[in-house]
Design a protein around this nucleic acid. Structure first.
Lengths: 234, 234
DNA sequence: CGAAGCGTTGAACACAATCAATTCAAGTGG
DNA sequence: CCACTTGAATTGATTGTGTTCAACGCTTCG
């Protein structure tokens, strides 16, 4: 295995405030790994043997219900931690993580997490902060699902995706990884049919341009108004 | 202010593994406080000046949407932490906490949290573990809301309440604090009307006995079947 | 005793799910 | 390069669950 370069992780929030030496120590036990598109980084309920940082690509975190339905919990972008079951006191992964595009991750043995956290308090702090952020994210999602109807939920979901992964093109903000109506449906607790209809309607109105596994938001502001319910529902 | 007795908090998960001396140190800066029924422990968006442990009573954690709708995020039972904004890196409370019954809490100045966490790593660990647990709770709630229809969601909510706060009576398991249809509606993202109809129907079938601000589950097993969708839908 | 809050119930409606049929786009292999 | 396969998307028709609107009964409490 090649020695990994420090520059890979310097500047990532998870390692903020750590000394160069510590970074090297941490990297020494890391293993870099390629994950092919549509394959799993880890599977729900499997032993949590590793935790990861995504260096490149996009990962979808998915929960599977007993009766086989899927819910997309969140998308992971480069620089984010994933599979930190240890940090929340679990020995198995609570969800599956699937590569949406070809990905590169750094992987550490799960047992090292506790070591890192105690030896480098800053690291522990940082990961806890991400857990805290995610708790808040999920809670706002609950509020949305409880109070908003489908159209606004889908609008919110799109806006979040754009914010996380929007790439500016001449038409607008493109969500720069493949995403299907089905995916959006699984994020918002609806059906691909309803999502399809909504996107078609929005395309009519000039808010978005969408194609096969691809969505561009052309008028974020108007979509925002729609998401907030201060509308314009024709 | 009277000196607080160590026995108040010994045995609570949040302080598990701490020495008697540490407990005394921690208690020295705590302030015991009575909260009258229907008043706030803290308010959403207010400066997070304190964090708390609930010693007695029940607290409802509520999120308010911009347009005035409420969502009940969770209920707190004695022994649990609340208002730990600091632990998730916030300076304001993300939700309001309302006493459902008369309550007793211990309160600490918010700034002390970081001190405690570094001085007594065990304390930090424990609170992070509760944050982790809550993250998981909320995530399963999202999955429920995305995949299950109202009847099953309400059934799940009742079962959770019974598990948390069930008191055995000769009729079954009573949720031992006042809870209205409106409350259940705000937990499950539906309306009080629908909840009312469901409870009436379940009472017909002998699953529950419900009255004014009070619910008793008489046949938890059958309610469970209903919640899991392996039914029996009349 | 009157008022306010909680709960029940009926009727009508609407949003979105479900069912179903096609069209469209992107590979894959002969 | 074209036929074929497969998965994604669109669109129409229908159904049903749950909301909305409305009126009323029952408690509790001041």
């Amino acid at each position: 295995m090649n020695k990994l370069d420090r520059s890979l992780i310097v500047g990532l929030p998870a390692f903020e405030g750590l000394t160069a030496e510590t970074l090297d120590v941490v990297l020494a036990s890391a293993r870099s790994q390629r994950i092919e598109k549509d394959t799993a980084v880890f599977e729900q309920d499997a032993e949590a043997n590793s935790f990861f940082i995504l260096l490149d690509g996009r990962v979808r975190v998915v929960k599977l219900t007993p009766d086989g339905q899927q819910v997309i919990v969140r998308y992971i972008v480069p620089g984010e931690l994933l599979g930190i079951a240890q940090a929340i006191g679990r020995s198995t992964y609570p969800a599956s993580a699937i590569a949406v595009t070809d990905c590169v991750v750094l992987a550490w043995p799960g047992k090292l997490w506790a070591e890192f956290a105690t030896a480098h308090p800053g690291f522990g702090m940082n990961t806890y902060k991400t857990v805290g952020t995610r708790l808040q994210d999920v809670q706002t999602q609950v509020v949305e699902m409880a109070t908003e109807q489908v159209e606004r939920r889908v609008a919110h979901a799109l806006l979040r995706l754009v914010q996380q992964s929007g790439r500016k093109t001449d038409e607008g903000l493109l969500i720069d990884f493949p995403i299907s109506r089905q995916d959006i449906a699984e994020m918002t607790g609806t059906t691909l049919h309803t999502v399809s209809r909504l996107l078609s309607a929005w395309e009519e109105k000039g808010l978005v341009i969408s194609g096969r596994q691809q969505v561009t938001v052309t008028q974020p502001h108007r979509l925002m108004l729609l998401a907030e319910g201060r509308v314009e529902r024709d």
